[in-house]
């Protein structure tokens, strides 16, 4: 998937969500035309959106500080943190 395709997928995903569910298929049919791959991708994400619920919350619900107390970060962890944090760029928007 190219960045351009991902942008298009996002655009169509958001557009579809603004429509009533019953009109989404027709919308995608109209805007995707022959591009079945993009259409399948958007449809599959829309369907995942319906089912996702609070799955991240569920996986984190039990995450508490007793782990924090146990977890000492290694040097390697600290380096990874540094790399990840230095990629956090405020001006992304």
């Amino acid at each position: 998937m190219t960045p351009r395709q991902w942008d298009r997928i996002q655009e169509l995903f958001n557009l579809a969500l603004e429509q009533p569910e019953s009109e989404r298929a027709a919308l995608l049919e109209r805007v995707c035309g022959e591009d079945h791959r993009i259409r399948r991708e958007v449809e599959s994400l829309l369907s995942a959106n319906e089912r996702a619920g609070d799955f991240i919350e569920e996986s984190l619900r039990q995450a508490t500080i007793s782990q924090m107390e146990l977890g000492k970060l290694s040097e390697a962890d600290m380096s990874r943190l540094f790399v990840s944090a230095s990629n956090f760029v405020w001006s992304k928007y």
Binding site: Q10, F13, N14, L45, A48, N49, R51, A52, F55, I56
Partner: peptide
């Protein structure tokens, strides 16, 4: 969209 993608 992030959540839908992750879930899928």
């Amino acid at each position: 969209l992030a959540k839908a993608w992750l879930y899928r």
